[in-house]
Design a protein around this nucleic acid. Structure first.
Length: 1059
RNA sequence: GCCCGAGUGGUGAAAUGGUAGACACGAGGGACUUAAAAUCCCUUGACCCUAAAGGUUGUGCAGGUUCAAGUCCUGUCUCGGGCACCA
């Protein structure tokens, strides 16, 4: 009975349908199994070495994923699975950066709470991501908008508030320590990072201060503090933006204009970490471009600060920063920023009006205007003069907006002979230009910034070279307290407030105009409900709308909360730690988990975060490291940027009226008259201001080509023709389109009209077409403006050929007719563009997966090219990968079913397997995943040619392919009888001895030119080899009797004979 | 303007200083088929030439180093990205 049942089973299941590679049924099965058995659960315990591979988490946008998004996820998943097979305990998590503007904008428009729309988007993302078989441990998912998560974002903010940066210790220390110091020593002998204008005070002065005065002073030291400053205010978004959120003077998101506005904002004292953030880059395995961008952003420059006296104001001085103190004898004027504090004080009465109007003008200009004007010179003379400390020379003081208030001291010493901007300014205001180096040339034409040569007109450094001059000058300044060597940064402290709803509330309340932290036990400070997501009538942020949202402080009093929320980068600056211990409610991450996972080993994400997320995360990480809360200075050891996947748009050409006119001429009239008796014909008739498309000189017929929808035009032509005494033939675009592949039908109509007597011909037949599309190869015969070029949905195009049956279903092509190519196909043109809905080039991964399977999709994304490079998505090539997967499958199955046998493999089979093991292992390690796929293809083609179906070869091959095509591998793995998942198999190891061959084919070059190949035994070398090579016919022939100068032999590589 | 990065067939691309174009797509030809699809086989950088063979040339351009250069060096052009009155 059993036998009978098995036989029956075999009969029903061994039909073709079952033995063919059916990706979707396999994939659904294993996806479910993996979910149900928790295959991707990760535990933080165990003796295995750890490996933490992380993708930058996405903002869950409403549009869902397109084929470009998963590129990095697939790549990281392959590495994660590979490392797991190699015996690592791999952490490969995913979550959502779920606070953000789009959800809030949507809320403003629809009233839907951002939490609700965000939840919906996340669910969609989750579904799409799961389809890709990414081995994420979903039990560790984090969301930055989850109160259980942002509790710890707020906690980190509180730590920053209660710490200052100590320059002695080179780390953050508790503010209490600073207070202690003040109580004993005042501000003397403290070396801490603080605001520029922080006053000095003694211990007794400190003690005499009120609570408010003390707190105000401490704000100058805290690592996050509220500050009145000029910010980038974006009225369009109703919020402040940071510098990296602005591109080309408008907001990166939305493209709204941005203006300067003085506002009180929370600020992060990132500049305290400038040096460490810069120096830390040297030890990171990150792309050079990212490191370089961060270096530029931090912008450290070494120079000198110099004090210039002001004539008539002995108590004041102007401090400048310069990187070229050696040029100080070339100073012929000074320039202050219009906002400089001394401007009003030193301006003379006669110049007061001019200066005031310049300041007003400069302040009114937006960044966009400034940028548009470029380097146009503007400025105003203050009437005052500065005193050069070295030679006492008096130089005029100007203000100009090319000097930035925010950088350095907001003042520059102008050296027109060496600085282009100063030179331009000097030319414009007719100021003197003094040469200071004997090598400077053509100073009447432009500045010369050289450091070469010896100084002239330069007092104490006359005759010296650059290297000697700088220390001389700096020494002289330092001795007299007039200046010192100084390091200057471009990096600004980061504005941390946003006037938005959908962000983390700042855990602060205000008392007597001063901010205080709420109690830690009151965390998280949750977002309150509001009636609308807009600013209040009084201009306060949306949180100002929350009814009765006040803090009850320990003193029992109620106070107002801070109404700003945190910026988008707050939650993303530490999320990598939360994955290690996602549900910990007493710490942001437990110590045990931190000690085990330590830091991210491999981080993958887009290059657009180069100076935003990646710099802020490093900043917070350095801070947490100072507090002893995290084990490593840097959060991510290695970083790779995946390139964008661009869209590949397809275009079709729709015929315009011009086309039909040209068509009638080219395809109908011209051949018609060539065949028949030649008739004198004017292409265009012209009578009484009326153009006919075609008018015959020897006949009273005129032809008009137009759309039948243009009834008015037809009417007009008809009238005109009647007045001219012409008979009229109207050919409509629509009927021409109907008969587009049969010009003789139209020719017949013309012939009948020519011979006929009727005054007016127009078809009565209802046309089938309302538009005509022309295959792109045919368009070259017509003028370009005979067509409109339109985007066509790439999903109905394959290999640039329009699928007419799919097109017929679209409203766009209802009643359209198509002029096909000679091959009977309709061809489109293509172009690479950004992937976007409006360009109809968005390819949804779900569709690709449904058709080819997730394994095929994963492999194809990797196969297109290197991860780091931007490249266009083109579904065409996927058939190559699909074919490969089927061939691979066919090594295991034929029509009869499972065909794997237990025979002993031969040398050649082993060599192909082990070569693939070697190449794939190496290539995954150097993150070259596209070439891995090639190696799989080569191996499969070879094994197929060898008709190899041996278990000893195919079983390791399944493990090898498992990171790339996990479903397929799981299915095949189980057929071998395994009950455990292929994810926990053992990665095969390449055994070099199988790679050895007995003979090797060596290319032979003569003078570097390839002349032929020679097959020699491995290991043959020296005189014996040389003799064998020289005996070759092709060698002798190409030598032409010349004597050999040198015989070069590179083992297993090449032979080169030099003559 | 400054700083990065990249230029290789019709296309995506490959190549520790060692036969340039692996692996694919597309295209062309053939087999199977009543036909189509699917599948399989052959050809495929350009040019010259042949019966077979063979040869010339070729990695943006111009030089250089080397027995040997897509790869290293110098200069130059083009494209992409970043920064931009940063003193």
């Amino acid at each position: 009975m059993r036998w009978l049942r098995d036989y029956f089973h075999l009969c029903t299941t061994s039909n073709r349908r079952f033995m063919e590679y059916q990706p979707r049924s396999i994939e659904r099965k294993w996806l479910k199994w993996w979910q149900e058995t928790g295959t991707y659960r990760v535990s933080s315990q165990g003796k295995k070495p750890k490996y933490y591979i992380l993708d930058m988490f996405p903002y869950p946008s409403g549009a869902g994923l397109h084929v470009g998004h998963p590129l990095g996820y697939i790549a990281s998943d392959i590495v994660a699975r590979f490392k797991r097979l190699q015996g690592f305990n791999v952490l490969h998590p995913m979550g959502y950066d779920s606070f953000g503007l789009p959800a809030e904008q949507y809320a403003i428009q629809t009233g839907v709470h951002p939490a609700e729309s965000t939840e919906r988007n996340i669910n969609r993302y989750r579904e799409q991501l799961e389809n890709l078989a990414l081995s994420f441990d979903w039990s560790r998912e984090v969301r930055t908008s989850d109160p259980g998560y942002y509790k710890w974002t707020q906690w980190i903010f509180m730590q920053l508030f209660s710490h200052y940066y100590d320059l002695e210790a080179q780390k953050a220390l508790p503010i209490a320590k600073l207070v202690q110091h003040f109580e004993h020593y005042g501000s003397s002998e403290i070396r801490a990072v603080c605001n520029e204008d922080t006053p000095s005070f003694s211990a007794s002065e400190w003690k005499a201060m009120t609570e408010e005065e003390q707190q105000t002073l401490l704000m100058c030291y805290r690592l996050t503090y509220p500050e009145e400053s000029y910010v980038n205010w974006c009225p369009g978004l109703g919020s402040v933006l940071s510098n990296d959120e602005i591109k080309d003077g408008v907001s990166e998101r939305g493209g709204f204009p941005v203006e300067r506005k003085l506002m009180k904002q929370w600020t992060m004292r990132i500049t305290a970490y400038a040096d460490r953030l810069l120096d830390g880059l040297d030890h990171l395995d990150w792309p050079d471009s990212i490191k370089e961008q961060q270096r530029n952003w931090i912008g450290r420059s070494h120079g000198t600060s110099v004090r210039f006296g002001v004539e008539g104001h002995p108590e004041d001085y102007i401090e400048v920063f310069t990187t070229r103190v050696d040029t100080i004898f070339g100073v012929t004027f000074m320039v202050l920023a219009p906002e400089h504090e001394l401007v009003s004080k030193i301006t003379t009465n006669s110049q007061r009006d001019e200066v005031a109007s310049y300041i007003k003008w400069a302040g009114s200009r937006t960044d966009v205007e400034r940028m548009a004007e470029g380097k146009k010179v503007s400025g105003a003379f203050t009437g005052a003069h500065a005193i050069n400390p070295f030679n006492g020379a008096l130089v005029p003081i100007y203000i100009a907006d090319y000097v930035l208030a925010g950088y350095g001291t907001g003042a520059v010493m102008a050296v027109p002979c060496g600085d282009e901007r100063d030179w331009n300014f000097a030319q414009h205001f007719k100021l003197p230009i003094i040469p200071i180096l004997d090598t400077q040339r053509d100073l009447d034409k432009s500045a010369d910034a050289t450091k070469e040569g010896r100084y002239i007109n330069s007092g104490m450094i006359d005759g010296m070279v650059y290297e000697a001059a700088v220390p001389t000058l700096v020494g002289w300044l330092e001795e007299r307290g007039l200046g010192a060597g100084k390091v200057q940064y471009k990096l600004r402290n980061a504005i941390f407030s946003r006037q938005r709803y959908w962000g983390e509330p700042v855990p602060v309340y205000w008392k007597n105009g001063l901010p205080y932290l709420i109690e830690e036990c009151d965390l998280p400070l949750e977002l309150p409900a509001v009636d609308q997501y807009l600013p209040t009538e009084t201009g306060e942020p949306p949180l100002g709308r929350a009814q009765g949202w006040r803090y009850t402080a320990p003193d029992g009093q109620q106070y107002d909360y801070e109404l700003n929320t945190m910026p988008g980068w707050a939650g993303s600056s530490w999320y990598f730690y939360r994955y290690m211990d996602p549900s910990n409610s007493s710490e942001f991450c437990g110590k045990e988990a931190l000690d085990y996972w330590k830091q991210v080993d491999f981080y993958i994400g887009g290059a657009e975060h180069a100076v935003g997320h990646l710099l802020y995360s490093r900043f917070w990480n350095h801070f947490l490291y100072d507090l002893g809360k995290v084990p490593e200075q840097e959060f991510a050891k290695k970083l790779v940027n995946q390139g964008m996947i661009q869209g590949r748009s397809n275009f079709i050409f729709r015929a315009k009226e011009r086309f039909f006119e040209e068509y009638v001429w080219l395809k109908v009239l011209k051949p018609f008259f060539e065949e028949e008796q030649p008739i004198n014909m004017e292409k265009l008739g012209h009578e009484e201001g009326m153009h006919y498309d075609f008018a015959f000189a020897s006949n009273d017929l005129v032809i008009e080509v137009t759309s039948r929808r243009q009834e008015e035009k037809i009417e007009r032509v008809l009238k005109s023709a009647a007045a001219d005494g012409k008979r009229l033939l109207v050919l409509t675009n629509e009927e021409l389109a109907d008969y587009i592949n049969d010009p003789s039908a139209t020719a017949g109509k013309i012939r009948r009209a020519l011979l006929g007597r009727e005054p007016y011909y127009m078809t009565e037949e209802e046309p089938k077409s309302n538009a005509l599309y022309v295959s792109c190869h045919l368009t070259s015969k017509y003028t370009p403006d005979a067509f409109s070029r339109l985007h066509v949905d790439v999903n109905i195009v394959e290999n640039d050929v329009l699928d007419l049956s799919k097109a017929a279903g679209l409203p766009m092509f209802e009643r359209a007719s198509f002029k096909l190519d000679a091959d009977g196909k309709f061809h489109c043109t293509s172009e690479v563009e950004k992937m976007s809905k409006s360009k109809f080039n968005v390819v949804n991964p779900d569709d690709v997966i449904e058709r080819y399977g997730a394994d095929c999709y994963r492999m194809y994304e990797m196969f297109i090219g290197p991860i780091e490079v931007a490249k266009p998505w083109n579904t065409n090539g996927i058939s190559g990968v699909a074919g490969f997967l089927r061939k691979f499958w066919d090594l295991f199955f034929n029509e009869q079913g499972w065909r794997v046998v237990d025979e002993v493999p031969d040398k050649e089979e082993l060599r192909h397997l082990h070569y693939a093991i070697k190449k794939v292992t190496e290539d995954i390690e150097r993150f070259s995943l596209n070439t891995c796929i090639s190696h799989f293809m080569i191996m499969t083609n070879e094994l197929r040619a060898l008709k190899c179906h041996k278990r000893a070869i195919l079983e390791p091959a399944v493990v090898l392919i498992a990171p790339f095509a996990p479903h397929l591998a799981e299915e095949l793995w189980r057929h071998f009888g395994h009950t455990e998942t292929v994810c926990d198999a053992v990665w095969p190891i390449c055994q070099e001895e199988y790679l050895q061959r007995e003979v090797v084919v060596l290319p032979v070059q003569i003078n570097g030119k390839h002349r032929g190949n020679i097959e020699v035994a491995v290991g043959l070398e020296g005189a014996e080899l040389e003799k064998l090579v020289m005996e070759q016919e092709f060698v002798q022939r190409n030598l032409g009797g010349a004597s050999v100068k040198k015989f070069i032999f590179v083992q297993n590589r090449i032979i080169n004979i030099v003559i």
